[in-house]
Design a protein around this nucleic acid. Structure first.
Lengths: 181, 181
DNA sequence: ATTTAGTTTCTGAAATTACTGAAAGTTATT
DNA sequence: AATAACTTTCAGTAATTTCAGAAACTAAAT
């Protein structure tokens, strides 16, 4: 059961993009493959489809599990493990986003917090702290906001997205209404 | 003029994070260094502060310029080039975000567009296309929305951010108002 | 308790990426 | 047009990352 040309192209593209999305080529390919394949796949099928070693697949699976992007299925009377995406596209994107937030933002945030607790002991440090403060605020705002967004219902989210730049008007509107009260 | 211990720690941290943010270690360090240093720096000062080669600094500068993260200053009667961040923290974050969108989302989007134009020629391709369609929609929504956001004035944006989960209520509010009309 | 069907871990090789230092290039000054 | 003060490029080396394949491990079936 080998991939059609178009599907193969997509899987390879996921590979190229893999490293940009936070994992490596092989893992990107695995992820793409599982997404476009209807039926859950075994580790061996994955290795064959992508012509990579079984060991490599195993490591990839571990990694994808740590991102919570795939889940295991079992078929009755069959000892093999079958892997499939852990959710719809939207869920997966969300998980990638969350994970990246954890890796790209949180460590910095905690370093900055520590650093900002200390008194600056000279002029250079003072300026540095001012800048770090700004980065800190920015990152905090972003993280806070992104978790607020995730709290919205899908419909609300959808409306919000469709709203686009109209959001500006809504904000102004809200302002007017609540100023009156 | 060498870095204080705390500032040094910050710069090194930017290095570690560098690769996650889309560039490499050295470039991350350079970026951090320029951000917390009040005065624009020469390439040699950068090389010395970070103990890296002059050539490496030159390459890093080119890269940071391609991201539009730094700009050149000149002092009268001095031929050296002085480098400084190209804007405030917010601007820089924006630029990084834009650049990453270009690298991480756009190539995929165009592959998907191409792929979705073709008729699926069998069942596997049909399912694959369905999935690709979902990814396509998601990515389109995200890009469209993010460019909408950048169109807002800083104050509007600020209000929006502060709004947090209140956003849900505002959406509902807007719904009610416009349903009446 | 052996065999069998499967998964995981680990080592060293291969590929990729980053860095240095020297050479070449550029531009102002004399 | 020579020199001086810089910057950039690039070839080779160093460091890091990725990967295959073998060995170790686990658990079910006999």
């Amino acid at each position: 059961m080998s991939l059609s040309e178009k599907n193969f192209a997509f899987v390879m593209h996921c590979g190229e993009m893999g490293s940009r999305w936070g994992f490596n080529r092989t893992i990107g390919q695995m992820c793409g493959l599982l997404i476009i394949t209807k039926e859950p796949m075994t580790a061996n099928e994955i290795a064959d489809s992508l012509s990579i070693s079984r060991g490599n697949v195993s490591m990839g699976i571990k990694e994808l599990q740590s991102w919570q992007l795939i889940k295991v299925h079992h078929k009755p009377g069959d000892r093999k493990e079958y892997y499939a995406p852990a959710g719809g596209i939207w869920d997966m994107a969300n998980r990638v986003f969350e994970e990246r937030k954890k890796r790209e933002i949180e460590p910095t945030l905690s370093l900055l917090r520590d650093n900002l607790l200390d008194e600056a002991s000279n002029d250079d440090e003072l300026y540095a702290q001012k800048q770090m403060g700004e980065i800190h605020n920015l990152l905090e705002t972003v993280t806070k906001w992104s978790s607020e967004l995730q709290r919205l219902t899908p419909e609300q989210l959808n409306k919000l997205m469709k709203l686009g730049s109209g959001i500006g008007k809504v904000i102004d509107l809200k302002d007017k209404i609540f100023k009156k009260e």
